[in-house]
Write a protein that binds this DNA or RNA. Structure first.
Lengths: 185, 185
DNA sequence: ACCTCATAGTCAATTAGTTGAGTAGGTGCC
DNA sequence: GGCACCTACTCAACTAATTGACTATGAGGT
């Protein structure tokens, strides 16, 4: 149900192909609603059938043809109505690493997993930083927030950034605890 | 696949009924692997069939009968092997509120949603605090970390706590941004 | 000449997760 | 005396998500 609105929200940024959306869902949208390309294509099909998006074929010369999708007025209205309703379900985190950590008996193995997570988090922060630069487009944050019509994308990006920063701080904390335990009984 | 190991990890704390597990998945485990009671009962059935847990019927007088589940050596070994492997999939957050915020045009409505989220986050922090007190059982954190055999449950709890704290900080930030926009063109 | 990567998808099968109802006795509150 | 909530599940139907394979074309490197 929510994927539907995530797709509609993504199309607020303008016309896009399924492939382009799958790129967007790989970076910014992945922070709060991950989706695979297959999910997106299926959802776009449904949305088109329901008249919430409009599809148009684009013939291409040096690339495969594609379909570009745009929000219809009905889609825009549906999204607007969704946005002001309180969420039906609470936010959920699914993190396999934490299951492993919960069960872990071997501090060395735990250390390795945490290090890996930190590398990955730093990579993600780098990518967020690039998305942020593209959004701000040379302006300072204050300028952007004053000028821009829609602050939503920036605020959700901030959530992604603060999540990964906190993630890293927690990892440091875990490493400190584990350090005391390596070589211990 | 991961729910399986989440259940096994939960049973590391000792024998439990499906109902008790569903309580655990409502509080501590919900931070990193949410599951409904129905999912748990189904999973326990499978685990019992695969010989990773053992079930025993317990007749009760003033309450419905129940089945208590214990880890078998095979289950323990399967979990141990899982724990030291790097995660197959990255962590995922699913948060309907962020879809709404991404799409939001109305600062007043956004304000209301964020306030609601803050109330909810404070409630969750309170519950975590109670779980923490029960874990520490009168000891200081340092004492606990030195004495306890398994630090996993404490470290995952810390992740839940730091997640919600960061959540609240981000909410404050969003409110500050929204404040500037209310009553603006 | 071959191989990999990027674009731009589709199809089918399976697993995972959600929702709602039903059963059934016990406890606590006003 | 009634009603809601707690314990402790089970069943069935449904929707969502994952996985892997497949189709095509072009670009760039070795």
């Amino acid at each position: 149900m929510s994927l539907k609105y995530a797709v509609l929200a993504a199309l607020l940024e303008g016309e896009a192909s399924g492939y382009e959306l799958s790129k967007a869902f790989d970076v910014s949208f992945a922070n709060f609603w991950p989706a695979t390309p297959q999910q997106l294509y299926r959802e776009l099909e449904r949305l088109a059938q329901d008249g919430l998006v409009e599809a148009r074929f684009v013939q291409q010369e040096r690339r495969p043809n594609k379909r570009m999708f745009t929000l219809t007025p009905a889609g825009r209205e549906d999204l607007r109505a969704f946005a002001v309703e309180p969420p039906r379900r609470p936010s959920a985190v699914r993190d396999e690493l934490l299951i492993k950590l919960q069960a872990m008996e071997d501090p060395e193995a735990a250390h390795a997993l945490i290090e890996e997570r930190m590398t990955w988090a730093r990579g993600k922060l780098d990518r967020y930083e690039r998305v942020r630069d593209r959004l701000l487009d040379g302006r300072t944050e204050d300028e952007f927030l004053r000028e821009s019509d829609r602050v939503g994308p920036y605020l959700t990006l901030l959530r992604g950034i603060s999540f990964e920063e906190e993630n890293l701080r927690w990892c440091e904390r875990v490493l400190a605890v584990l350090k005391h335990r390596v070589g211990r009984g």
